[in-house]
């Protein structure tokens, strides 16, 4: 019995990961984190600067002392802020192109932790997803394909697929936890949640929704209950081999629809990148799988 458990455990956690999947995540995370920093640049001093909403002397007093940040160790000067900000952007790009990929992933994780801990007033779900996926990328085979490291022939051999599994579990967990958090909500149960969300001006759609959608209670019920069903069903379905592809497709469709309908910054995009960790190239994307040389024993949901 013990031997069977150990064998199943090892098969689940330590089967080598498909390096194409890991490389896709590396590129996706690098690009998204770069863009997230880029679009924050006009307000960087507002969020992290000494003349902003939370100068370091106030941050030290107000924020959780356990939540460390490189930014709080440096002199309180915006020059240092811009140096760190610029370095983080450069390292995100270097991660995307795969130059010393593992070093870039580790440094980018430190930057993400530092900027997020430095000002918790403005941190949201997407920041946590970016930070956590970046952490696991440090230990995944991210440099073996589509990277400058691979061109230079300098890629470490990573035999265990555990880090990619953790990314899969993390993305699934976000979906499931979001569903569980909604279960006690009366508006989700009576189906009026989406009706209320459609009338929030900060999340207001990029375009005015027609009255037939925004003002129709049955549309709201359908979408509210559909959201609940999806947030519970996808995290289960994605681990069942026969429903895996359908669950991933449903999750990606859901995120694209939300991105179209609501103002949610990069949350949907970093989640889509996370869901791509479930893709089996040779089965789901055979035409792409043929173009990119196949990998042996990819670790996915089975």
């Amino acid at each position: 019995m013990r031997e069977r458990f150990v064998a199943a455990w090892d098969r689940f956690w330590h089967t080598p990961a498909d390096p194409r999947v890991a490389a896709g995540l590396r590129i996706g995370v690098g690009v998204i984190v770069f863009l997230a920093f880029l679009f924050q640049a006009p307000y960087a001093t507002t969020w992290w600067g000494e003349d902003g909403l939370l100068p370091s002397r106030v941050a030290r007093r107000l924020l959780d002392p356990d939540a460390g940040s490189v930014l709080l160790l440096l002199p309180p000067d915006d020059l240092w802020l811009w140096a760190c900000f610029g370095l983080a952007m450069v390292q995100a790009l270097l991660l995307a192109v795969g130059w010393h990929s593992h070093v870039q992933a580790a440094c980018l994780f430190v930057w993400l932790v530092s900027f997020q801990h430095r000002n918790q007033l403005v941190i949201d779900g997407e920041d946590a997803v970016m930070r956590l996926i970046t952490f696991f990328l440090i230990f995944a085979p991210i440099s073996e394909r589509w990277s400058l490291d691979a061109l230079r022939g300098r890629t470490p051999r990573i035999r265990s697929g555990w880090a990619l599994r953790m990314i899969q579990i993390q993305v699934t967990f976000v979906f499931l936890a979001a569903g569980l958090e909604k279960l006690p909500g009366s508006m989700w149960r009576d189906g009026t949640a989406l009706y209320h969300i459609f009338l929030l001006d900060d999340f207001y759609p990029r375009f005015a929704l027609p009255e037939v959608i925004a003002g129709n209670l049955w549309v709201s019920r359908l979408m509210s209950w559909g959201t609940l069903a999806l947030e519970v069903a996808v995290p289960i379905g994605v681990w069942i081999p026969r429903t895996r592809a359908l669950a991933v497709a449903a999750a990606i469709f859901f995120h694209l629809a939300l991105d179209l309908l609501m103002n949610l910054y990069f949350f949907e995009w970093i989640m889509i990148v996370g869901w791509l960790s479930f893709v089996r190239w040779d089965e789901d994307l055979p035409w792409l799988g043929r173009w990119a040389a196949p990998a042996a024993s990819p670790a996915t949901a089975d």
């Binding site: 430190v110 956590l132 952490f135 936890a177 958090e181 909604k182 989700w188 969300i197 929030l200």
Partner: peptide, 22 residues
């Protein structure tokens, strides 16, 4: 989790009920 930088966040995405205030 704070020291390691591995904290989750509140996954209360519009939960338990959406804020119905602008």
């Amino acid at each position: 989790v704070d020291v390691t930088g591995l904290e989750q966040t509140s996954w209360k995405l519009f939960a338990p009920d959406p804020d119905h205030i602008n």
